[in-house]
Design a protein around this nucleic acid. Structure first.
Length: 292
DNA sequence: TTAGGGTTACAG
DNA sequence: CTGTAACCCTAA
């Protein structure tokens, strides 16, 4: 009667996915309580979150005739809407500031959403989420984890390499348990301790836990949501949002590179951060030029 | 509160 | 008419 159907927006979906990445699937109340998401999801209940998450999963794995197209796109960058202009795609990592020409005087109210949506997600969280969601009694193998993340999120071309090194690292630190090519989540949560085995002795110098560093990983929905919002904005507003996003991406790169110097295990992550950031810049630039 | 099963509304 | 997504109900 009064309420026809409240379809989920891209923003809401993005918030949900981000929430699941951080708090884990099933912690709907926790996600809803998180001030970062409560704003976007204010009109949703915990049950709504649960249902939506189920829908996403069902559609993705259960071969909905609709998602088959998605599966086929695998390697293809997302956002089917705005097709990439081959003319603009290059020049990502190295040179830069394609955004310098952008007037930054635009009102900040436009970027409020970008502000609240801190998309800093750790690859660790994604891996844990994958294992948690897959719920395989014996654990999930690398391929299953990779497929999960690739389908649900946004994976770079060299993701396989990155994932392998990450899994190895997490296993070495006791976060994961590897048995016959299958990974399970270690019993105790990350908060406890990192099993500093003194008996091992050797030159082990108590690493500063490279895991503390945060990686910026966009989910498909997050990127889509951002672009969708920009479509409705004026060119100035869109440009401001794009500049902000690129700035964040560059910050993420700097962060990752710095960490890479401190811990050799972070090398792959620094590389990944560049790929993610590059793709984001490409997408945002493309949209920006369109609106301009 | 959450996980499932089931129902209704809407789009193709 | 069929499939999908939001919504609803109930058991654990």
């Amino acid at each position: 009667m009064g309420a026809p159907k409240q379809k989920w927006t891209a923003e809401e979906e993005a918030a949900l996915k981000a929430g699941v990445s951080k708090h884990g699937a099933g912690k709907w109340q926790t996600i809803l309580r998180d001030p970062e998401y409560s704003q976007v999801l204010s009109s949703r209940s915990n049950v709504d979150l649960k249902d939506k998450w189920r829908n996403i999963n069902v559609t993705l794995s259960g071969l909905g005739s609709r998602e088959k197209a998605r599966l086929a796109l695998k390697r293809n960058p997302q956002v089917p809407n705005l097709d990439d202009n081959p003319s603009v795609v290059n020049k990502v990592g190295s040179d830069e500031k394609t955004v310098e020409a952008i007037p930054v005087g635009a009102p900040s109210e436009a970027v409020q959403a970008a502000d609240s949506k801190k998309t800093y997600t750790r690859l660790d969280s994604l891996i844990l989420e994958a294992i948690t969601t897959l719920k395989e009694p014996k654990g999930s193998d690398r391929n299953a984890i990779a497929l999960y993340i690739e389908e649900r999120y946004w994976a770079p071309p060299n993701f396989s390499k990155l994932l392998a090194s990450k899994l190895k690292f997490m296993t070495a630190h006791g976060q994961l348990v590897k048995v016959k090519h299958r990974y399970r989540i270690s019993v105790s949560l990350p908060s406890s301790e990192t099993r500093r085995n003194s008996s091992l002795g050797s030159k082990h110098k108590d690493l500063p836990m490279p895991e503390n560093k945060e990686l910026k990983i966009f989910t498909r929905s997050e990127v889509e949501a951002e672009l969708e919002k920009m479509k409705g904005f004026s060119p100035f507003e869109a440009a401001t949002a794009a500049a902000k996003a690129v700035a964040e991406a560059e910050a993420a790169i700097a962060e990752a590179e710095k960490a890479a110097r401190e811990a050799e295990a972070a090398e792959a992550e620094a590389e990944a951060a560049q790929v993610f950031a590059a793709a984001a810049m490409k997408a945002l630039n493309c949209q920006k030029l369109r609106a301009w």
